[in-house]
């Protein structure tokens, strides 16, 4: 627990460093309302998907299919819109479809006892493939402006983009669920010791299944946000996003082995990656530097606890 707290402190410290460096090096435009609006838009989908994925990873599982669910929901929006459905019926349908995708993952993992890594690599290909089957390589872009405008305008009177409002509301819900409810305690218990959790009466399979369903549904919501933000429904929307989300979650201090982590750390991780990205773009730095920085941060975030542990044990060993 102390280790965890230390890691989150380090993240907040890094965030402050990034903000200050940005503010100084860009003559104050980094923290200006206009830039924060774009920063917020940029991290919207990652922030959304990171929420349920945190719970999945805390429970000791992984879901690599989330970006494909995002793409499938985007393709479905385009397909159903072309078929003449109204957006009021499309959006709930798409969220349900996302939940079904998550349920397929969850059932394969819990009922057949298959490793989630292999299952979700399979469904990563399957769902993206279905997206391609549904929409091919065409793009649908003729959505009404009332839906697409939220990608270009903030909440009236503020600089806050709508996706961030959505992410914030969901973050509070997920935060309460993970850190202040018996459901959250059972998620931690499953991740720490699945056998022990089962013997203490936790319905392990049901909890895990619900986490995968949540991940699918929220990934579909992220797909809706993505589609309207770019005003374009395409089958290849968000390809490769799963790695960015997993990187943000692990950077936020969640243990890949499960049982450890906090939603606060994950949000800090998402902000840190998004802030760095934004800063590098403002500096006209090439995006490949960002790719390297993302990878290095991920490596440091997993190496740091291991190194401190080793140093700690050496210090203990010394008289």
């Amino acid at each position: 627990m102390r280790n965890l707290l230390r890691w989150e402190t380090a993240l907040v410290f890094l965030l402050v460093v990034v903000a200050l460096t940005g503010q100084i090096s860009t003559d104050g435009s980094f923290l200006s309302g206009g830039n924060l609006f774009y920063l917020g838009l940029d991290i919207g989908e990652i922030a959304l998907i990171a929420l349920p994925l945190t719970l999945v990873i805390v429970a000791g599982e992984i879901d690599l299919s989330v970006a494909s669910v995002l793409g499938l929901s985007s393709a479905l929006i385009g397909w159903l819109w072309n078929a003449g459905w109204s957006l009021e019926t499309i959006l709930p349908t798409v969220i349900v479809a996302g939940a079904v995708c998550g349920a397929v993952n969850g059932l394969l993992v819990t009922r057949l006892g298959l490793p989630s890594l292999a299952v979700t690599i399979g469904t990563l290909a399957l769902y993206r493939g279905l997206a391609l089957v549904v929409l091919g390589d065409t793009a649908v872009a003729d959505f009404p402006a009332s839906y697409t405008s939220f990608g270009t305008t903030p909440v009236p009177g503020t600089d806050i983009p709508y996706p961030i409002v959505l992410a914030a509301v969901l973050a509070v819900l997920f935060g309460v669920a993970l850190h202040a409810s018996s459901f959250g305690r059972s998620v931690f218990a499953i991740g720490a010791n699945e056998e022990g959790a089962r013997f203490s009466g936790i319905r392990v399979k049901r909890v895990k299944l619900s986490l995968f369903v949540l991940a699918g549904a929220v990934a579909a919501i992220a797909g809706i946000v993505y589609t309207f933000r770019f005003s374009s429904a395409r089958a290849d929307n968000g390809v490769g996003l799963e790695l960015a989300v997993v990187a943000a979650v692990l950077l936020g201090g969640v243990s890949i082995f499960g049982g450890k982590g906090s939603l606060f750390g994950v949000l800090a991780g998402v902000l840190l990656l998004g802030g760095l990205r934004n800063l590098l773009i403002l500096q006209d730095t090439s995006t490949e530097v960002l790719t390297i920085v993302t990878g290095l941060l991920l490596l440091v975030s997993v190496l740091a606890p291991s190194v401190t542990r080793r140093v700690g044990s050496l210090r203990k060993a010394a008289p």
């Binding site: 992984i62 890594l117 692990l250 890949i256 090439s286 490949e288 390297i292 990878g295 490596l299």
Partner: peptide, 17 residues
């Protein structure tokens, strides 16, 4: 899984750079 996810980014970034 985490290490090679990290180096996936790093090596590709170096490649682009």
């Amino acid at each position: 899984l985490v290490v090679t996810l990290g180096t996936l980014y790093v090596f590709r970034g170096i490649d682009y750079a």
